[in-house]
Amino acid sequence: MSTKIIISPGKYIQGNGELAHIENYTKNYGRKPFIIADEFVTGLTKDIVDKSYKANNAEYVMELFKGECSKVEINRLKALAEEKGCDMVVGIGGGKTLDTAKAIAFYIGCPVIVVPTIASTDAPCSALAVLYTEEGTFDEYLLLPTNPSVVLIDTQIIAAAPVRLLVAGMGDALATYFEARACKRSNAVTMAGGNVTEGAFALAELCYKTLISDGLKAKLVAESKISNSSVEKIIEANIYLSGIGFESGGLAAAHAIHNGLTVLEECHHLYHGEKVAFGTLTQLVLENAPMEEIKEVIEFCKSVGLPTTLEDMGAQNVTEEQLRKVAEASVAEGETIHNMPFNVTADDVYAAILTADKLGKYFK
Rank of each mutant, 00 (worst) to 15 (best):
R31F: 04
Y208N: 07
V276A: 06
L354E: 00
K66G: 09
I298M: 06
L306T: 10
T42W: 13
K54S: 15
L284W: 11
K96W: 02
H21I: 02
I157G: 11
L64G: 07
V297S: 01
C125Q: 05
V331I: 10
N16K: 15
T133E: 14
V263C: 13
G136K: 07
A237P: 08
T282Y: 02
A129D: 13
N16A: 14
S227A: 15
I157E: 08
R76W: 04
C125A: 10
E83T: 13
T176S: 04
V112D: 07
L286D: 05
N238H: 07
N288S: 12
A218C: 04
I158L: 13
N16M: 12
G109E: 04
E205M: 07
V349W: 01
T97L: 04
G171I: 11
S224F: 06
I337G: 05
Y107G: 03
T3I: 14
S303A: 13
R31C: 09
A175L: 07
Y208Q: 10
G93C: 11
V49N: 13
T121N: 14
I157Y: 15
A20C: 08
V221F: 10
K96A: 12
I5V: 14
T309E: 00
S229T: 11
L143G: 08
K184Y: 07
T146K: 13
Y240R: 09
E292M: 05
L152T: 05
L306D: 01
M340S: 02
L166N: 07
H338K: 09
F246M: 15
L241D: 03
T133I: 12
F278L: 03
K358G: 02
M62F: 12
L203C: 08
E333M: 10
V163I: 03
A101T: 02
R324E: 02
T100I: 00
E68C: 06
L19K: 12
F278K: 01
E223T: 06
Y12L: 05
A188K: 01
G91S: 08
C267N: 08
G109A: 11
E247Q: 14
Y141L: 11
